Computed example of a mutant assay.
Amino acid sequence: MKKTGTIIVLAGIGIFFVLSMFWLYSKNSEDPVIYATESPSKNTIIKKTVATGSIVPKEEVLIKPNISGIIDEIFVQAGDVIQSGDLIAKVKVVPNVNSLSSAKNNINSARTQVETARLALESQKSIYERQKELFEKGVISANEFDNAQLSYNQAQQRYNQEKVGLSGAQQTFDIVKTGTTSGLGTSANTEIRATVSGMVLDVPVKTGNQVIEANNFNDGTTIATLADVNRMIFEGKVDESEVGKIAEGLPLEITVGAIENKNFDAILDYIAPKGVSENGAIQFEIKGTLNKKDTTFIRAGLSANASIILARADSVLSVKEALIQYDPKTQKPFVEVETGEQQFERKDVELGISDGINVEIKSGVSEGDKIKVWNQIKAAPDFSKSQ
């Protein structure tokens, strides 16, 4: 029994020794670990944040009628470029029965007053002519003649005033009935004309639609929307986490989804002082005026993205941000620079701006240095030895 146990122990020791030797041989035969390197290069680094929004005209003018009625004819359509004063539409007036009746009664009353004033004028004229003959014969005094002349002049003035009143009543009646009248030019007519020059963006009404004039109690019906499409702005929103990083006057790079391979420059000129809650997040409205140096036509309402440039460094020495390490105690950045074959030395660096991929190197390394990449790779197998 003792002999058998001894043999088993010796056999186990032998097997363990053989396995140990095989493991050591395998470790020694593994390929050595090799670290790749990268050198700094000159790049332009732009630190920016992105806002989503759309392109809209800087100013839109709503054309509204100055009288209520029904659209009789439309002379423009969306996309037309028109000048100030061009005819847009005509409105056919549908008179209000009560207003028409009241205006007609006013005319009848004015005519009665004119007739009364005419009769009074004729009476005073007869008296004046008789008093004049008597005065020339020396029958009456100059004072009595002057009184007769004054009464005649007053009767004539009253008659003229009543005629003006009749004319006003007639004009009111014409406006109520037809929407226009003689002697008022374009202040009361059925022709709707452009008040500014620009492009027609929208014509929301059609022939036969009823329209309401703009007044103190109603905004009125919009007949057309005009805008200068050469003065466009970007309107968008930024999150509350980004609004503290931006300021008015920063440059914008606008990209429009419908216009490929084209960027437009703009200047951020408005940041809303108050945020609005949207889907649980606070959003702040921003606006930027486009600097259109070319003739590319941008349609109003197109979706766009604005890259707000927070900082920019042109042609500066930079490396990939993944190559930067930080001291666990001091949190200062450093890199490892190759000094020999797979031998590296730590060098502290001073960083500048970063775009999230590349970071500016202000000092610590030069353009020709080889910086250690922390991804370990194995040496490529040498197939020439196996042949």
Score class of each variant (00 low, 15 high):
Thr52Cys: 00
Thr296Glu: 07
Leu184Thr: 14
Ile233Trp: 04
Lys245Val: 01
Met199Phe: 08
Gly179Glu: 08
Ala300His: 04
Thr222Gln: 11
Phe297Gln: 14
Val9His: 02
Thr44Tyr: 09
Ser26Ile: 08
Gly179Cys: 11
Glu129Asp: 15
Glu144Phe: 04
Glu115Gly: 07
Thr49Tyr: 02
Ala379Ser: 14
Asn279Leu: 00
Gly356Val: 03
Ser29Asn: 14
Thr172Trp: 09
Ile46Lys: 10
Ile309Met: 12
Gln343Gly: 04
Lys104Asp: 15
Lys47Ile: 05
Thr330Met: 09
Gly364Ile: 10
Val256Met: 06
Ile267Thr: 15
Ala11Tyr: 05
Val337Gly: 00
Val93Lys: 08
Lys163Gly: 02
Gly79Gln: 10
Thr222Gly: 05
Ile63Pro: 03
Ala188Ser: 14
Val337Glu: 02
Gly183Ile: 10
Ser318Val: 07
Ile223Trp: 03
Phe16Lys: 02
Met1Ile: 06
Lys332Tyr: 09
Ile127Pro: 02
Pro40Val: 06
Ile298Pro: 04
Lys362Pro: 10
Asp174Asn: 15
Val94Cys: 06
Ala272Met: 02
Pro273His: 09
Thr186Ala: 12
Ile233Lys: 12
Val243Thr: 07
Leu317Phe: 09
Thr52Asn: 11
Glu59Leu: 08
Met199Asp: 08
Asn153Trp: 05
Val94Lys: 13
Pro273Cys: 08
Val61Phe: 12
Ala227Tyr: 06
Leu201Ser: 02
Asn218Leu: 07
Ala78Ile: 09
Val373Asp: 09
Lys385Tyr: 08
Ser241Ala: 13
Val18Tyr: 11
Ser126Pro: 02
Gly5Trp: 08
Val18Ile: 15
Ser141Trp: 06
Glu60Gln: 12
Ala214Lys: 15
Val373Ile: 13
Ala155Gln: 01
Gln154Asn: 14
Ser318Asn: 10
Ile267Gln: 10
Asn66Ser: 12
Gln113Tyr: 11
Glu260Asp: 10
Thr178Ile: 10
Thr195Pro: 01
Glu242Arg: 02
Thr181Ser: 15
Ser187Thr: 15
Ala322His: 02
Ala304Val: 00
Val276Thr: 13
Lys362Tyr: 11
Ala117Lys: 01
Gly257Ser: 13
Asn106Ser: 13
Glu253Ala: 12
Gln342Glu: 08
Thr255Cys: 04
Glu350Ile: 05
Asp31Pro: 08
Asn189Gln: 07
Phe264Pro: 01
Ile212Cys: 05
Leu121Cys: 01
Glu260Gln: 14
Gly14Thr: 12
Glu133Met: 06
Ser20Cys: 06
Pro273Met: 07
Arg158Met: 09
Ile15Arg: 01
Ala214Thr: 14
Ile212Asp: 07
Ile271Gly: 05
Gln149Asp: 14
Gly85Arg: 07
Ser99Tyr: 07
Asn261Phe: 08
Asn153Arg: 13
Ile8Phe: 09
Lys2Arg: 13
Glu59Met: 11
Asn358Met: 06
Asn263Ile: 12
Ile34Ala: 05
Gln77Leu: 09
Gly257Ile: 08
Ile357His: 05
Lys292Asp: 09
Val81Asn: 15
Val319Trp: 00
Lys58Glu: 15
Thr255Ser: 12
Asp355Gly: 10
Ile45Glu: 09
Thr112Gln: 13
Phe135Asn: 10
Ile34Cys: 02
Ile107Ser: 03
